[in-house]
């Protein structure tokens, strides 16, 4: 039973990490257009924060929209 709990926790941790990989890949392309130095500007950091939050908003809205079609 402890093993099951461990596996489930690992599994959900893994899903979160894979989502972070996907979101970083997508938002980095859009929010960091050029490489001038190794730091993030305030504008780039704000864009990354907006990007992931708007993506999650969109995801939730699509799920609700599909549910209402049924």
């Amino acid at each position: 039973k402890e093993i099951m709990t461990f596996l489930e926790a690992e599994n959900s941790k893994q899903k979160v990490q894979m989502s972070v990989h996907q979101f970083t890949n997508m938002c980095f392309k859009q929010c960091v257009p050029a490489i001038n130095n190794g730091d993030l500007s305030t504008h780039e950091e704000q864009c990354l924060n907006n990007c992931v939050n708007r993506f999650l908003d969109t995801n939730i809205r699509i799920v609700k929209g599909l549910q209402s079609l049924q």
Partner: peptide
């Protein structure tokens, strides 16, 4: 769900992603 989210995010929202675009997403 994944494909629709990706496509509609791409078509409706643009950098710096400050505003939600719920009408467009629908």
């Amino acid at each position: 769900v994944n494909k629709i989210t990706e496509n509609c995010f791409e078509k409706c929202l643009t950098s710096p992603y400050a505003n939600a675009q719920e009408g467009c997403v629908d």
